[in-house]
């Protein structure tokens, strides 16, 4: 029951964040670079709630992005699934007070996301100037995303605690 509730909450939150990312974030782009909120969300669900929830959020967000913006379905699902999975592995060393792990994992996840996108969607079409793509697209996105992470991390942590406390209390009554 507790798991089911958590699954529903994570799916609703992912849906909300996806809408936020595609409808609002393009308006706050800085030098044509948009921060990647979905990477932050999937990574946080991964290291806060474990592999299963990370994979759930990743597959769900990725699938939405595939359906709405991909030319074929499956690639983004796979990328975000991996991000959720790898961050889930960090669950054992996660301490809520320590912001270093979240920042590092977002750096890693976003670099991973950018590199895979470049290799599969650009390199395979013969666009070889990797230097340009790293310096003008991948790294700026990463920096912007990390800055956003620092700003929203307390909020994510708060949400996480409210969620867990709420479930624990509900469970007590049942």
């Amino acid at each position: 029951m507790k798991q089911l509730k958590k699954i529903i909450v994570i799916m609703l939150l992912s849906l909300f964040l996806f809408v936020l990312q595609s409808a609002v974030f393009p308006h706050i782009s800085f030098g044509q670079v948009v921060p990647n909120l979905i990477v932050i969300a999937v990574a946080s669900f991964g290291f806060m709630d474990g592999i299963w929830y990370g994979m759930l959020a990743g597959a769900f967000c990725g699938f939405l992005q595939d359906v709405f913006f991909g030319d074929f379905i499956g690639l983004y699902t796979m990328i975000y699934l991996f991000i959720g999975y790898m961050n889930g592995k960090l669950n054992n060393v996660f301490y809520p007070e320590d912001i270093k792990l979240p920042l590092l994992s977002v750096v890693g996840s976003d670099l991973f996301y950018g590199s895979v996108c470049y290799v599969f969607l650009f390199l395979l079409r013969g666009k070889l100037s990797a230097g340009f793509y790293y310096t003008r697209v991948i790294l700026p996105e990463m920096v912007y995303t990390v800055i956003i992470t620092m700003a929203v991390y307390p909020l994510i942590l708060f949400l996480h605690r409210v969620m867990d406390d709420g479930f624990r209390r509900n469970n007590g009554f049942e």
Partner: peptide, 11 residues
């Protein structure tokens, strides 16, 4: 009402 959520393509 929505733009491509990444920085790679423009749709």
């Amino acid at each position: 009402i929505a733009r491509d959520s990444g920085n790679w393509f423009y749709s």
